[in-house]
Design a protein around this nucleic acid. Structure first.
Length: 314
DNA sequence: ACGCCTACCTGCTTGC
DNA sequence: TGCAAGCAGGTAGGCG
């Protein structure tokens, strides 16, 4: 599942492959992949431009093009990017591609068609303007979790402006940009904080533990080139962080810290994995809503949890 | 305004 | 063996 570490890995590996390439054409077979501008204006917005750089903001790939244009790609759940020669066969899940002047293609393969591409432009200050030409594309995104400006003090201010439970909060891109379901569970496990814990009940050591856990797990995941689970793979192949996850997808397996079985609850329609021994829920946060979610998880399910398929190196 | 919920998608797995 | 339903989750948009 591409989250910050996975998208960062794609950006790093794509950069040497496509920088200086010139776009000569655009093709797609699924109109909704084009987010902006309207499909009839998309090709002219990119054809003839060269790729200057490949970066990342939140879970978006950001390709700077000549002329101040920016190509933004969201791979979302199942998107994969590759740069093969045009004559190499492409399977039915490639729904978008850019033709390059040197005979290669930048292909977006996306089994579930959630991925989106858009062409925007940078203003004089370097901000990426969104579809309405006045609004910054990432205005509703919080800071980068690994950014130098996200100090512990800054993180505390972000937390103290919010209410709600920790798991949904970590998934909220307006708090921090780039955390998804895998690394939210991993960060909470590392910080020994229960996913249903209310942010308003955190003490100073809890805030510090969460800060270190988020930065630590994301840094390690970037170093390991992300978690290859189900469909994620990078231009240079699968990552290896999936072999080092302590919480995500480990329902019923022993907690790596205390050995007790890991548990799973469903929170906001998202699987949430945690150790109920290491990650205690304080009595004040154990309200009716929290107890109902925990009870629901304890009831036998009609269908068993499907074990997540871990991609193995190829 | 904010938090919570669902739709969007398809392939794989499970249950009957 | 076949078929239908459940499940995965990032994010936009809708609801209360």
């Amino acid at each position: 599942m591409p989250e910050l570490p996975e998208v960062e890995t794609i950006a790093r590996e794509l950069r040497p492959l496509v920088v200086d390439a010139t776009i000569t054409g655009a093709w797609w077979d699924w109109e909704r992949v084009i987010r902006h501008p309207p499909p009839e204006a998309f090709a002219e917005a990119v054809v003839g431009r060269s790729i200057l750089d490949v970066g990342r903001r939140a879970k978006w790939l950001v390709l700077d093009l000549t002329g101040g244009a920016v190509l933004a790609i969201q791979v979302k759940m199942t998107g994969q990017l590759s740069v093969p020669l045009a004559e190499e066969a492409r399977d039915k899940h490639v729904h978008f591609l850019l033709q390059l002047a040197d005979g290669r293609e930048l292909r977006l393969r996306d089994v579930r068609k959630f991925g989106r591409v858009g062409v925007y432009r940078r203003d004089e200050a370097g901000s990426i303007l969104g579809a309405d030409e006045a609004r910054e594309l990432f205005v509703e995104h919080g800071p980068e979790p690994l950014g130098d400006d996200l100090t512990l003090a800054a993180f505390r201010l972000l937390l103290r402006a919010r209410r709600g439970r920790l798991k949904p909060l970590l998934l909220d891109q307006s708090l921090l940009a780039g955390i998804g379901n895998i690394y939210a569970d991993e960060a909470l496990w590392r910080a020994r904080l229960h996913p249903l814990r209310r942010v308003t009940s955190l003490r100073r050591p809890d805030e510090r533990a969460l800060y270190r856990a988020i930065r630590g797990v994301l840094t390690e995941a970037v170093e390991r080139r992300g978690s290859s689970i189900d469909d994620y793979t990078a231009p240079e192949g699968d990552g290896e962080m999936q072999e080092h996850l302590d919480a995500y997808g480990r329902t019923g397996l022993p907690c790596p810290r205390c050995g007790r079985p890991m548990r799973r609850i469903v929170l906001g329609a998202r699987s949430t994995h945690f150790c109920s021994w290491c990650q205690r829920l304080p009595a004040d946060d154990r309200d009716a809503g929290a107890l109902a979610l925990i009870r629901a998880a304890n009831r036998p399910r009609r269908t068993a949890t499907r074990p997540r398929r871990v991609r193995r190196g190829s």
